[in-house]
Write a protein that binds this DNA or RNA. Structure first.
Lengths: 337, 337
DNA sequence: GTGAAAGCGCTAACAG
DNA sequence: CTGTTAGCGCTTTCAC
């Protein structure tokens, strides 16, 4: 019993006028007489007419929809980004199609195809950990699709980027540990092939070298989630190689490290100071509370969307990719002092 | 320089055949000769033809898109739900349009209109705290739009529902506190006009009455976020009216209560036991770890989507609303024993 | 001030 | 086996 929605034709028929007149009346075209407008609008309201966005999209080759490809929604950072995207899009009358890659390459490719098929007007992307080939995104780009990358960007891609200054933020975080007297600082790092992973590690290295501290490769461990952090801590403990400070590539990793250490009876921050990255709801809740770098997810989402909408709405402007770099804010709590 | 995407017509022109033949060839219609199929498919791949989903939607009055109206994305529970929705939709070849109401009524109305306009095939809704009027949703329903409510449902609405048994889960949580010897148990409750708020309170009341414990109205306080919990705890402390157990309507409220109490030097769970609701990433991270009720967000999202897709794909089946009640799982951690 | 006609990309009934 | 035609809902010239 799906009653077909009211169309412009229905209104035209009832009023004994032509569809074009109705169309014009609805958008307040100056040519149309006041009475006709009034009649049309009244009937439209009475029949609860809702314009068919699909037909409009087809006609104008503009869907008023933007697509988002995101690794995982269930992350405080990413859901904050989505929230920012959604708010800005909403205010501009755009809808948002969300796809999650679940960190998988094949799914990211499928997502890109789907969005292309749906003729979204632009796409916001943060790439999956697994992705090392980006032909699917280049394809979008070459097809003229505005593309804005956020957080996890593709190095060398001609496109707009919104990131935080990972290197600088990591530098600040590490420096903070050093200033509090830590000398043997470990880094639990992200995947090497992601810019964010590399940049954060570089910031860490810069802080060490600036302070004249030697780099101990055995203290740089690839671990970017809770479980891996637990394993890493155990290994360091077994080898009697525990550091006096740890800078992790994200907060959950920091929590994993912290709890594993506490289980070993190690006091934080007294014996080992810890600082995470990407301040989420977590950081104020752990005991001790976790120092971290605020990644400004909401802001990143809204800025990325503003850039994208700008590209969509004024496509003629000469295309020079912009990169917006947000400052990651060091938030010092109990775990590092 | 938006190069227009390849269409079926382009392929037809190049191959010197008709668009309908191309269309049929692409969908492997039995009538078409093998050679034609081969030629068409090869060219399609070479030109990177992508079917225009918009045109298809218009033609078939089916958009292969479902809409979601959700209060706030930045919540572990809701983002888990979205994740479940997205996964199931993806596997069925559907895309997902996400709208957040930000807990506001007017925005929920606008969202509903937007989804209607975009002719989504069905909608998943969890209503905003602010919403008390539901005409916008009834309008969808009356227009024949399949509607599935999850978690925050509308009482009395003829539609499918997916919820957890809030009453029973709250009962179990409260009973657990009682079994651990607590006698003066407070409840930090959600808004009265939401079913979930009422149900959780009722479960709490049932557990008390079953145990023969008197209900103390001064211990039932409307507080459903971190800040309100802090205020509530201070008030109780000022009045020298602290309970020996607290059951809160969500986890963040529990954390607020816990930290406010700890600041007063009160030991948890020794002096006051606490149990939350809606097990998120938080609960394993607090100190002490927080007992809670797992709300199965991912599962709720996927089940709701399955029901919705079912309605969409077999619309002729006689319509009898279904309600799926998931069991909320009590997860006992340190804060309550 | 209003209407007729064409077309956005695609499919499906009807012809051949 | 393939082509022609019409139409999904809407806008937009071009006529009158």
């Amino acid at each position: 019993m799906k009653n077909n929605p009211i169309t412009i034709k229905d209104i035209a028929r009832i009023l004994g006028i032509s569809p074009s007149t109705v169309s014009r009346a609805l958008k307040d075209h100056p040519d149309i007489s006041t009475e006709t407008k009034k009649a049309v609008n009244e009937l439209a309201v009475r029949l609860k007419y809702q314009p068919n966005a699909i037909a409009l999209s087809l006609k104008q080759s503009r869907s008023n929809t933007i697509g988002v490809i995101i690794p995982e929604i269930v992350h405080h950072f990413f859901s904050s980004v989505i929230s920012g995207i959604e708010d800005v899009a909403y205010n501009a009358g755009f809808t948002v199609m969300i796809c999650q890659s679940n960190e998988r390459y094949d799914r990211e490719v499928a997502n890109a195809k789907m969005l292309l098929s749906h003729r979204v007007d632009g796409v916001l992307v943060s790439i999956a950990k697994e992705s090392t080939n980006f032909d699917h995104l280049k394809l979008l780009k070459e097809g003229g699709m505005p593309l804005v990358f956020f957080d996890r960007i593709v190095p060398g891609m001609q496109a707009d980027h919104v990131v935080i200054d990972d290197e600088e933020a990591a530098y600040k975080a590490t420096k903070h540990l050093i200033e509090n007297g830590r000398k043997r600082i470990a880094h639990f790092s992200g995947p090497e092939h992601l810019m964010i992973g590399r940049n954060r590690k570089n910031g860490y290295l810069r802080a060490l070298s600036e302070a004249g501290l030697a780099v101990d490769p055995s203290l740089i461990i690839q671990a970017d989630n809770y479980e891996k952090a637990v394993v890493a801590v155990r290994r360091l403990a077994d080898l009697n190689n525990l550091p006096d400070g740890i800078f992790t590539t994200n907060d959950l990793t920091a929590v994993g490290a912290m709890q594993a250490l506490q289980k070993l009876g190690i006091e934080i921050p007294k014996q080992i100071a810890i600082i995470g990255f990407s301040d989420g709801r977590l950081s104020g809740i752990t005991n001790p509370t976790l120092s971290s770098v605020d990644q400004h997810g909401y802001e990143m989402g809204s800025i990325a969307t503003e850039i994208l909408l700008n590209r969509i709405l004024s496509p003629d402007e000469k295309y020079t990719p912009v990169t917006r770099v947000l400052e990651g804010q060091l938030v010092v709590r109990e775990s590092s002092i």
